[in-house]
């Protein structure tokens, strides 16, 4: 089980515009970032997220780990993720 979860009240548009309704903050995410956020919103686990990314993008699962962890850290930095 993941020990973190995405904040509620997040809206992400198809163009990658991200709005955090509780704080009024806005962000931009790229295509891969948007896909991950959407999957996190659906409460998907890491391995499900990875297999989805591998299906959609030209990348091997083995190479995803580092980038994924880095992205989660960025989300934590912006307080978009809560650590349980």
């Amino acid at each position: 089980m993941t020990n973190y979860h995405l904040q509620e009240n997040l809206a992400v548009s198809d163009s990658g515009f991200l709005f955090h309704a509780s704080t009024g903050e806005t962000f931009t995410v790229n295509e891969t970032g948007k896909t991950i956020i959407k999957l996190l919103q659906q409460k998907k686990e890491k391995d499900e997220i990875f297999s989805q990314l591998v299906n959609e993008f030209d990348i091997e699962a083995g190479l995803l780990e580092k980038d994924y962890e880095d992205f989660i850290n960025q989300l934590k930095n912006f307080s978009l993720i809560e650590v349980k």
Binding site: E25, F27, V29, N30, T32, L53, F57, D70, F78
Partner: peptide, 20 residues
């Protein structure tokens, strides 16, 4: 498949919307 790019997020700061 779509070209893979490292996932990134950046925050908008007022006045600097277009910089990053």
């Amino acid at each position: 498949k779509k070209r893979y790019e490292r996932p990134v997020i950046s925050k908008h700061y007022s006045g600097l919307m277009n910089k990053y």
